[in-house]
Design a protein around this nucleic acid. Sequence first.
RNA 1: CGGGGUGUAGCGCAGCUUGGCAGCGCGUUUGGUUCGGGACCAAAAGGUCAAGGGUUCAAAUCCCUUCACCCCGACCA
Length: 566
Amino acid sequence: MRWSKTLHTTLRDEPQEAEIASHKLLIRAGYVRRVSGGLYTFTPFGVRVLRKVENIVREEMNRAGAHEILMPALQPIELWNISGRASQMGASMFSLKDRQNRTMVLGPTHEEVVTDYIAHEISSYRQLPCTVYQIQTKFRDEIRPRFGLMRAKEFIMKDAYSFDVSMEAADISYKAMYDAYVRIFERCGLDAKAVEADTGNIGGSHSHEFMVLAPSGEDGIINCSGCGYSANQERAERNTSGSEFSTKNGEPEDVPTPGARTVEEAAQAVGVSPEQIVKSLVYLADGKPVLAIVQGTREINECKLRRVLGCSILELADDETTVKHAGPVGSLGPAGVNLPIYADTGLKGARDVVTGANKEGFHTRHVSIEDSVTVKAWVDIATVVAGDNCPKCKEELSVQRGIEVGHVFKLGTKYSEVFDASFLSAERTSNVMVMGCYGIGVTRTMQAVIEQNFDENGIVWPASVSPYQVTLLELDAKKDENCRIVTENLEKELEENGIDVFVDDRDERPGVKFKDADLIGCTVRVVVGKRALEKGGVEVHIRKTGETRIIPLADVIPAIKKALAE
RNA sequence: CGGGGUGUAGCGCAGCUUGGCAGCGCGUUUGGUUCGGGACCAAAAGGUCAAGGGUUCAAAUCCCUUCACCCCGACCA
């Protein structure tokens, strides 16, 4: 392809809408154009990269034995009523009516459709195991789309679903997908790592997220250098056996703390450190109020709390509800409250702490949680932070940021039961299939590749997903007819050797061409110009390393092949 | 949904406080000079100043309403 024949444009200025490097570069280099919040047009260059990522995913899925299918993006709401997720997904699902006034949704995911499909298709254990996948557009009405393709309202996802005769068999399918994911991200040039993850409203017992480490990532990842434990901050646990509290404990005593609403203010008013405050919060678990308590300097982790409560909707109660069931906001305490109380395990053995007195403007000091509070359950509900101890080996934990590019779930029978996806076993009994589901955000992965591969001049594409493997700059074309001929021949030769090449044949000054080539970021840059031709060759430059060499014309193809293979 | 901010040429922005001809840089077009890391000179095209309403002799500018977008938070396979 020649630049003069394309509609490709680059931007000199940074787009005002973009925050992170990969988003700025996607726009500046001309890979995507914003249509509206969270919606993007992929330019011809953008599509080329996208297709390369998709094909890597497709090849690895096929290699893992999965079968490609294509399901509709538009789905009848009935399927979602069957699974019960219509209400659960709620506002995050785009919904519309057809002219018959039937409610349709734009699929945010496809567990319902695929389970319904497989339930009709498979009836015998002989047809199992079976894994199907598709690469398709998903829709989610994100509250706040951001970072370009990272969190968009419409995006491309690869979603795969496995069906097995038993839990044990499902583990094998899960492992096959897990391994395929490792290969996929590696082939995309990504440094990704698998971490234990929360299953969220999709359900299921066990899951791993594949994270691309990047400071701009939206997720926190907890790591243990001692044993390799790694988990999403949403789910990460900690060892609390070492918690130290005062051994002495005076008589509980109310002290006035007028106007103190935050932990900091309360600590100041009582004259203790914030660590000695116990924070109490009322939550509504599927509408039922509960009280959660945690050390004042810690955050309650709502994902973990939701898991231990086993509810689907968990929200912080508003002030009115809090006052009605417990006590005044700001002076809320666990003592004497008639609600199920869930105490963070970090508070076990806590003595001489300060809680709200459930009296406006008062806190109680010298409280022993175990003596004064009727705890329904001791549970790990605090968010793990750097410096906490590993739940497995007690080493100190650290935190990194990551971009979630893939997620694998052991689903169990949540969907197969309600959609009656059952089969007849060899023993002639009817059994429910055990499912797994596996997603990769394809468009997000494309942007994540940039987030991990750029420098001050632009994108640095790995060869596997570079829009063109080679950018060929034609310089001095007006001065020297020979430059044009060499460019033309080289273009032809590269194409004949199966190497994608993009020729910058614009009537531009060399500086412009160099800048654009760096910005666009193809893996190898070849310059045809008088300078090198006089030495009998062309210049071959590796974008990533910056290495430049003049290669004799006869040796160019092998030299490029070698560079692309590295 | 709460808080903050921004809407002016394709892109990036000034002008708004204190009302008085619609501006700058980049990009685009034409001509010329230049030509190995985002050139220079000259000329030109390109605008419903987000939309609607109001105040005023006069509104990009002041007031009201609406919309869009961005940021923080809540939320989120």
